[in-house]
Write a protein that binds this DNA or RNA. Sequence first.
DNA 1: AATATGAATGAACAGTCATTCACATAATTC
DNA 2: GAATTATGTGAATGACTGTTCATTCATATT
Lengths: 196, 196
Amino acid sequence: MPESKDTKAKIRRTALRLFAERGYNAVSMRDLAEAVGMRQGGLYNHFEGKQALLSDLMETHMVALLKALDAAMAGINGTRARLEVFVRHHVAHHLNYPDDVFLAYMEVRSLDPDNRARIVALRNRYEYMLRNILEDGCAKGLFSIGDAAVHARMLLAMMTGVTVWYRDNGRLSRDEVVDLYLDAALQSVGLTMVQS
Amino acid sequence: MPESKDTKAKIRRTALRLFAERGYNAVSMRDLAEAVGMRQGGLYNHFEGKQALLSDLMETHMVALLKALDAAMAGINGTRARLEVFVRHHVAHHLNYPDDVFLAYMEVRSLDPDNRARIVALRNRYEYMLRNILEDGCAKGLFSIGDAAVHARMLLAMMTGVTVWYRDNGRLSRDEVVDLYLDAALQSVGLTMVQS
DNA sequence: AATATGAATGAACAGTCATTCACATAATTC
DNA sequence: GAATTATGTGAATGACTGTTCATTCATATT
């Protein structure tokens, strides 16, 4: 029984990597089992099926994302400060968990309707937090943007895209990348940067 | 033979829609044939196979995108003007051909290595044009951005994301959306907007 | 020592996949 | 009108799909 949790975790880890690399539909349960180091039948001792595994991975990630964001935002009150924390947290999280993020973005359409509804609801909660900050900044005359809802989607797309190109052994460190995205985000809402 | 071109075009159109809606791997040749109004065998009179069809769709789109961009940029000289044209063209194109764009973005990994290399090369050419403009604006001290290469990717991700949420019967017209993205893009590089 | 449990196996199941092919039909060319 | 070509059909192919299940095995509990 001590092995059990290890195996389940290993299946999770491997499935996350393979699904993110090749796409959910392009990975068979045999492929997955082989990568884990077992036979396909054994997977079903740990997960109900392929769809349940995908759904589990995505929900786990979304819940963790929201929880971490809540923690990071706790006690932050200024509108500008809240935007800064959101951006920093979002980009850093996406740099730290690229596979989770990529999967959650790309494979929503591979979920059955029920699972999809749950995941999309979580995603909307996340998007709403940013829109809230932007609307706040608009109402106070701090930000200069055309439309808060649209701008929230712009910023999310912009920031989420970091997973597409960032590589760890590249020219820039993660911290530098976070700073670049923060500067761009602040400037996009009409805030001038503070020299660091 | 008059039917021939029509059929081929219809297969293309239908495949584009289905691949974009459900994903390349989730659409079978039977599904496609049925949606076109024929049997699966007949598809092979028009395309070598499924992979060739996908590759054809993506290449056709990328070539059209680059050609249209070249046409739009012809004779535009100022750095700021070039950025404006690029952004307007990019967003408008993405609003007009959402399926093409979505497919080209999502299904790169479903291409075999050879086809992928060709498509990625075309995509890089496109990205390079924007980076060029940004580097130009930086060199002239017009733009205030941290890193031109990174900022190009930020803007592309931001603008391309419009396909994810825009719906034709929504709150905003295409032109309004283009304007919103233009304003955000200009502000993100440190340019103040001109009141329209 | 006997029993129960969790976990892995490997074969089997019913379906689906992309692709091929012999054949029919329709259109075009001579 | 006959020959040729283009186009579509429907069945067949073999490989692969997610899932199930009887069985085995090692470990833990009684």
